[in-house]
Structure formats: structure tokens, C-alpha cells
Design a protein around this nucleic acid. Structure first.
Lengths: 259, 259
DNA sequence: CCTATTTTTATGTCTATACGAAATCAGAAG
DNA sequence: CTTCTGATTTCGTATAGACATAAAAATAGG
């Protein structure tokens, strides 16, 4: 078997050997050099590469496994874990389509606008990016039981997500598509309440001034901007829920019930 | 030095030795037997108690340290970590008083009601508790710059939090007091938007029908109910923000700006 | 009494080895 | 071709020993 060369051979920067190995492995995963699902070197191969004992390698890989970055299977080896969807998905909308299918309710989404734009000054300032960055702007309405469920206003970096140029989002809504196509390392969520103006009330089919919940989600990968989205839920009938455990610090459940 | 007897001496239930030690230590911390800041047995003492090698103990304690449950200091020993405030505090309101002091702005809170009640049927159903449970009901208004910042409607379990009978919350608001006095293991947050009714609008000093952000937070300790609170933020001027890293899964920052 | 130095101690890291367990792979049997 | 079986690989866990490191504690010096 050919040993994949790791992207970084430099080491020992005032840190321990196991720390060096951990950093290297983590860098190879986060950079995408080692793709999700791909097999990483075995303990024996790491031993040879770093000239150390198996226990040292084992400590590193076991810890990475506990943190959910890799999956380990006896005899098979260690594999890069698929992107985590737990805390990742926190405060993300559910997959409307799948949820609707599970309940046997008619769901559809409508692409109201799909256009290549330059990032506006206001948005650029807010995102700490340069204005004029080429982005794909998508406006999307999620409809369940012929009732508007959410209105989505999104920009996607065309530099970072090149494949999005070919995607019409007619089959799959933008949020779902992105989750399956782009990894992320940082996400920032902001939630606020607004009174619906005339335009929004018209789109969502609610009275003007009705309270709406707005979830803003910004995602980065390796410090590079990926997407920025405002998802507006109409009226008082929507909730965002997150459950935590203090020991694991992880989200246990996630819910967006529609009453 | 006297070795504190761990609460559970039973072990080996189809799991490994290190798993047994981890479970025991974790149980002693989560149950409160070993209080935050308290020193836990040294590696040598664990070796004697479990008749195992130091490496085995070291693996367990190192991992617990990585997870943030204990703090380890050379020569000093290992200590139960203080309750984590990162993911714990996620979506919790900031400490109004401290924030105000940092900005030199006049903050105060008003206790509108403090009364021992029996848990209502509606709330009991929602919390999956029996109606009639004795609770302390507290209504509190947070005021900054003479502007109402948040309205808090809370119940606290008198069975679980006995010390709360003596607390008037005149010096410290209920949320801050609870954080310092009661550990938690599970927390559930729900966020929704509502239109302010006449009563709420009056309390918060905003026009009727204005959109408000409502944060509901329920906390448990060891499957026992601790507290349930609705915090209502007035108008469109408040946001809840959480930042995540996909590698650590932890909240990096937290913000409730008032514009 | 205060300060500087040495000692002691608990943790941090690493090695080499060992046995166990599980899953894959290959080969044998049907 | 399918199924069973056994061998091999890889990870899981544990041991005993070693040296390093940081910091508290004890000691010596001013």
C-alpha cells in the first residue's frame, strides 16, 4: 500500500510528538487533503513516518476518534469522519423536504430569484469581506401544505463554491444542497424577531406587523466565506429548539415544529 | 491524606477497566459528591484503589481533562472543573449587571413578584412533571439606562433548590444566582417570536403588537427539574448569537447586543 | 521575617511489549 | 456461485518502566 504523503512534514515547534502528529492529521483533514470517508494511514504507517511507538500513535488517533474527527474500525483502519451534523446543524432549519416526506405532507420549494450578483457594500461590511465579491443570490420560499413555512434570502460565494454555478436548486433547496457539497469549519448564528413589513407579509401570506423569527446563519471553511442566509419564519407558530448536555456539550435534539 | 471513598464501588459491567474508572469519576463529579474546585484522588491513589497501572489512570484523567470536566496541575493534583459556561451559557442571557458595569451604564433589576406557588397544570404538562409541585415563581424586569431590557418569568423547583427559600434576589437577579448555586446537566432552549400583548407592552414600554424575542430555558440536574424561564426581549433591537467551530463543537462567542 | 534555593511530588510524555477482540479477507466446502 | 470457516490484520486495552517538567513545599540564607 502506498503511504499518502501528509501535507506537512515539518514538526517539533515547542510541542510534544503526539501534539505534532495530532496537528498534522487534523490539518490534513481540515484542509480537505484527506476527504471524508477516505482511509488514513494505519498505526503502523504512522509509527514508521514519525519513528515512534504504537502507543503514541494510538493515543492521538483514539482522541481524534473521541472528538469525532475520525472513525476507527478494527482490521479496516481509520477513516475521516463525515462532516458532523449535530452541533453543525444547530439552529439550522430542518430538511424541509425530508421532514415533509416523513409526515406524508405535500412540500415544495419555489426559487423566487437566482442571480449572480456582486456583494453589496452593506453585506460586505457585515461579513467583513470586500464589496463586489461575486456571489450567487438565491431567494427561496418553502411551502408546506400550501402554507409558506419559511422565506430564505441567501448569498453563496462563487469563488469558494464553484460548482454552484451549474446548480439550479430546482430539485434540491439551497440549504440542503450546500450541506451535501461544501464542508464548513465555522458557523455563526444570529436570531432576532422582526415585525413583517408589507413585502414580507405578502410573500409569507400573513398580516402586516405580524412577528417573525429570523435566523441568520453564516458559514466559513478555513477562514473563507461560504454562505450567508436569512431564514424568516412567519408568525408565532415556529420555534427553534436546542438541547444540551453539560458533559458532552453537544446538541442532543433539534426541532422546528410547525403548529 | 485520606482517600475519599467514591460513591460507587461496583464495577466491571461488560466494560473495560478504564471505562469503569471514567464512569465512576464522572458520576462522582456529576452527582456533586466531588464539588467544583475540590481535589480528586491522585493517580497513585487511583492506582491503589483500582489495582491498575498509572498509564491506565492517566489515560482516563487526561481524557476527562480534555473534555473539560477536570483541571490538572503538576504537583498540585487534579481538580473538579468549575461548571462550564461556554455551551452551558449558550443562548443564556448575559449577566446584565456585569455587562452594564463594564460599560459604566446604570443597570438595575426589579423583582415584580416572588411567591411560592404550586406548579400549574399547563406548565407541569409541558415540563413533564406532576402538577402541584412546590415552586418559587419569580417575575423580574431588567432595566438598563432606564429602558426595560428584558422581562423574566421563572419558576424554580423548591425541592431541588432548597436554598432559594432564603433568597430574595434583591442583590442578585435569579438567573445569575442560580448559575452560581446550582449545577446542571441538561439544558433545553427554545426561541420564538411573539407579538406583544397589552400587558407585556405595558411592562416593557413598547407599542402593542411589537415583535418580541422569547427565550425559554429549562434546566435539569441529574434528571431532576431545576428551573424553567421565559425571557422576553422587547422589539427588534435584540439578537442572540452563537458561534461554533466544527472541530471542537463548542461555542466560541456569545452576544446579546442592545442597539 | 522575607527571600532564594533545593527538594519533593504529581503530572506529561514516551517506549516496548503483550494479549484480546473484531472485522476483513482468503480459501475450503457445499 | 454461495456459504462457512479459519487466518490475518488492525485496532482496543493494559502493563511496567523511564525521563522530563512544573510547581508546591521545605530548607537555607540574608
Amino acid at each position: 500500500m502506498t503511504v499518502r504523503e501528509s501535507g506537512n512534514a515539518t514538526r517539533v515547534e515547542g510541542s510534544s510528538l503526539s501534539e505534532t502528529i495530532r496537528r498534522d492529521v487534523e490539518a490534513n483533514i481540515m484542509s480537505g487533503l484527506w476527504a471524508p470517508g477516505e482511509r488514513i494511514p494505519s498505526e503502523q504507517e504512522f509509527m514508521a513516518q514519525y519513528h515512534c511507538s504504537r502507543m503514541t500513535v494510538n493515543r492521538v488517533l483514539s482522541r481524534l476518534s473521541e472528538r469525532g474527527l475520525i472513525l476507527r474500525r478494527r482490521k479496516a483502519g481509520s477513516f475521516v469522519a463525515p462532516p458532523r451534523q449535530d452541533s453543525a446543524m444547530f439552529l439550522e432549519i430542518r430538511d424541509f423536504a425530508r421532514e415533509a416526506a416523513g409526515q406524508g405532507r405535500p412540500y415544495r420549494h419555489e426559487i423566487l430569484l437566482r442571480r449572480i450578483e456582486k456583494l453589496s457594500e452593506v453585506r460586505a461590511l457585515s461579513l467583513r469581506l470586500v464589496p463586489g465579491l461575486p456571489v450567487l443570490r438565491v431567494l427561496c420560499l418553502h411551502v408546506l401544505d400550501d402554507q409558506p413555512q419559511a422565506y430564505e434570502d441567501r448569498v453563496i460565494s462563487l469563488e469558494k463554491v464553484k460548482a454552484v454555478r451549474e446548480e439550479t436548486f430546482e430539485a434540491v433547496p439551497p440549504g440542503t444542497w450546500l450541506l451535501g457539497h461544501v464542508p464548513w469549519t465555522e458557523a455563526r448564528h444570529t436570531i432576532r424577531a422582526i415585525n413583517a413589513d408589507a413585502t414580507l407579509a405578502g410573500i409569507l401570506g400573513i398580516p402586516e406587523r405580524d412577528a417573525c423569527l429570523v435566523l441568520n446563519r453564516r458559514t466559513w471553511h478555513q477562514a473563507e466565506f461560504v454562505t450567508d442566509v436569512d431564514i424568516t419564519y412567519p408568525g408565532e407558530g415556529h420555534e427553534l429548539t436546542g438541547q444540551f448536555s453539560s458533559t458532552t456539550g453537544q446538541v442532543v435534539s433539534l426541532d422546528v415544529p410547525h403548529r
